[in-house]
Write a protein that binds this DNA or RNA. Structure first.
Lengths: 223, 223
DNA sequence: ACAAAAGTGTTTGTTGTACACCCATGC
DNA sequence: GCATGGGTGTACAACAAACACTTTTGT
């Protein structure tokens, strides 16, 4: 290949988790300079022959211990001065997980890794404020076009959990009865027959998302 | 900076143009190997300190002569074997222009550059078949969420042109009266007072898109 | 018995869909 | 006068929005 510019490539992952009826984001506290001791989005460099998706999965496994999570790239950030160490182009991803099923682990370059409520995100290192804002916009668009809400919930969930997730992501209030009427028409969201136990109120029916029925349904409406 | 993998970075632009009531894509015939004489999406390498957006604009200006066009990145393709010359990571963009206002120019590495109807795209070089498919999907999602149709039309356009554009992009048929009823409610699409001339049928009112009114309107519905 | 969340229908307004004819122009 | 696309309204169905009370459980 001819003489040609080449670049360091990184991936940054905005990890959205859902727990206690709150949408949260995984942030790390940086162990090393630059921005030592400051908050940042977890990420790392692409290495060797891996794709950007493989690099992002690798980072996510280090961070969360999980291998089964939803990951979607949404933007490339390539401002020449975005990293004080030199020219680094980053591919930003967002990931979705049920935060209750994972413990965050501070990986190599982090002294802490914690869940942070989206109402209350601190100022972040590098251009990560922008990356986070764009991630939330991308999540909102994606969740309208694909059945991604279920990636944030346990496999069995109550309708109230599902409703509160939508309210949280889109920052609005939804009428319970109207919401349930709508869900009832979606036959890819189905009763499991089991119910919640031990709450200090009436037990709730647990539902699950049926991907096969959804695939059939969505291919029908597209044609 | 430590020893670390670095990569050649390119941009590929799926340029959508609209002319004669048809959505088209600009393709080049490659002048050099690999894929010499085959069709491909125009693109080029990112150089020096430019952002990927700047690189894409540079390529588009070489290709179309235009500087005022809409450009949006939509995906990074990073399979290690996607380019037989070596490891090249590419950031894919789609661009929107009124094809009647530009003449395609075959740039450096192309022997031809032509508009090609989207009904009839040939097999493309590299992984460009995939890039093109994803571009069309990204265009459909984007055009539902932003007022991008107007980027493909002349500044003054008839409602029939606007309607046919939607029909073309989404591959469906729309009822003329219902479409016009809907447009009438959008006060950011406004009559210009001038009409088409010289057609061998009744003249049509020309409309224009008012970005200021749209901004006001869209900020209201978001809140 | 009280607190806390689960569950359930009806009415009203808004939006979408289906559908057919006359009009202005060029040739 | 004929071919071509421009322009218009109404009736019905589907969907969205507003709204309050009873049920089941734990303490």
């Amino acid at each position: 290949m001819k003489h040609r510019s080449s670049y360091a490539l990184s991936v940054d992952c905005v990890i959205f988790g859902y727990t206690e009826s709150k949408l949260q984001v995984a942030l790390i506290e940086r162990k090393n300079s630059p921005y030592k001791g400051k908050w940042a989005i977890p990420g790392g460099f692409v290495e060797g022959d891996e794709t950007v998706e493989e690099a992002a999965f690798r980072e996510l496994q280090e961070e969360t211990g999980l291998s089964d999570l939803y990951l979607q790239q949404f933007h490339v950030f390539s401002e020449p001065d975005r990293d004080p160490r030199g020219r680094v182009i980053t591919v930003a991803f967002f990931a979705l997980i049920d935060a209750d099923q994972c413990e965050l682990v501070a990986s190599e370059d982090a002294s802490k890794a914690v869940w942070w409520s989206i109402d209350d995100i601190p100022h972040l290192s590098f251009d990560h404020d922008t990356i986070y804002d764009d991630a939330l916009k991308a999540l909102r668009i994606a969740i309208k076009n694909q059945p991604l809400a279920f990636e944030l919930l346990p496999k069995k969930f109550t309708l109230t959990q599902l409703q509160q997730l939508y309210e949280e992501v889109f920052d609005l209030e939804i009428d319970k009865r109207n919401f349930r009427k709508k869900v009832a028409k979606m036959d890819f969201i189905q009763e499991t027959g089991t119910m919640t136990k031990g709450a200090k109120h009436r037990p709730a029916m647990l539902y699950s998302f049926n991907n096969k029925k959804y695939a059939k349904y969505s291919s029908e409406i597209m044609l």
